[in-house]
């Protein structure tokens, strides 16, 4: 808890940077910057969501892209039905994610360790195949969205900048929410269970309910990211829930440092910028990215996760 002041400063700095970024883009006359930054923010939300259970709960979910997909398809499906309001899109995404997370979480959380990793991965793949076979929404190819979500009936989000600030506001709100959760009674039980589940039982807690709740909260947050991502790309496809995407989310969390929330935001930023930069260098950028990833894991003493886990 003694690192909070530092984190508060770092958070202020990072979020201020995000807040003034569009003006920077204006100054540089580079509108693409805002587009990338929106993408970064959407992923930052998802990484934040993952860090909540991975960093604090010790639950390595390798299927969080499923929630990106649920969020994204909420937009596609509701829009097709003529419902374009962002609030309703978010509500549907959250409801869908809550249902999916409750069912798959209840089953996955009966297991631990490797099992948990593989099962979350498998369930995400199930979601992937569900949308692949949903031919009404383009199956494998996905669908292009006719328009972005509306706010109070107005198409304000058609402006890239408005979309950016909406995403930013959501990120900020969810970040503060996540910080509050981790410092609450609930957060303490979640963290305690990661530290030593037997001890938690021996003082009277049943970890399952808390872990499941955290899992559902995390899924709902990630679905919000999916809604924003769909709006940013104007396009929704099963690729949103590809298992590589789940892997990338884990990479983001670890790049930024497991278990401190702000790290997830920073990690998403770093990972996506690295991707952008590498893809300018070569079309075979995944190879370079993979090499960097392997090197980072192998040669940072203890591995990255160990490196960051030592702090409270």
């Amino acid at each position: 808890m003694r690192i909070i002041p530092t984190r508060a400063w770092a958070a202020t700095a990072l979020f201020t940077a995000f807040a003034i970024l569009p003006f920077l883009a204006d100054a540089l006359d580079d509108s693409y910057l805002v587009v990338i930054a929106t993408r970064i923010i959407a992923y930052a939300i998802a990484a934040l969501a993952l860090d909540l259970i991975l960093g604090y709960g010790g639950l390595v979910s390798f299927g969080h892209a499923a929630y990106l997909g649920i969020g994204a398809y909420s937009v596609a499906i509701l829009s097709r039905a003529g419902i374009t309001d962002l609030g309703l899109h978010l509500a549907a995404a959250i409801a869908g994610a809550a249902i999916f997370a409750t069912i798959t979480g209840a089953i996955s959380l009966r297991t631990k360790g490797i099992y948990f990793i593989m099962i979350t991965l498998a369930f995400a793949q199930m979601g992937y195949f569900f949308f692949v076979s949903l031919s009404a929404y383009g199956g494998d190819d996905g669908v292009t969205l006719a328009q972005r979500s509306t706010l109070f009936g107005q198409p304000v989000l058609e402006s890239d900048r408005a979309l950016y600030y909406t995403a930013f506001a959501l990120l900020l709100g969810l970040y503060l929410l996540a910080v509050a959760i981790t410092r609450s009674r609930f957060g303490r039980v979640l963290t305690g269970t990661r530290e030593n589940p037997v001890r938690m039982r021996a003082i009277g807690f049943s970890p399952f309910r808390y872990q499941l709740t955290a899992f559902v909260i995390s899924g709902c947050m990630a679905a919000v990211a999916g809604v924003m991502l769909a709006n940013q790309t104007n396009y929704v496809s099963p690729a949103f829930m590809d298992w590589h995407r789940s892997g990338e989310l884990v990479v983001m969390v670890v790049f930024g440092g497991v278990g401190n929330l702000l790290g997830a935001v920073a990690g998403a930023t770093v990972a996506l910028l690295l991707e952008e930069w590498l893809s300018i260098l070569t079309e075979h950028w995944p190879l370079l990215f993979g090499v960097i990833l392997v090197m980072v894991v192998l040669y940072s003493r203890d591995g990255l996760s160990g490196l960051f886990r030592r702090r409270t």
Binding site: S184, G204, T213
Partner: peptide
């Protein structure tokens, strides 16, 4: 944490426990 287990609900998400 042990005290918390027997005093009140731990499904409280917003106020800082410390």
């Amino acid at each position: 944490t042990a005290v918390q287990a027997r005093t009140g609900s731990s499904f409280r998400f917003f106020s800082p426990v410390d």
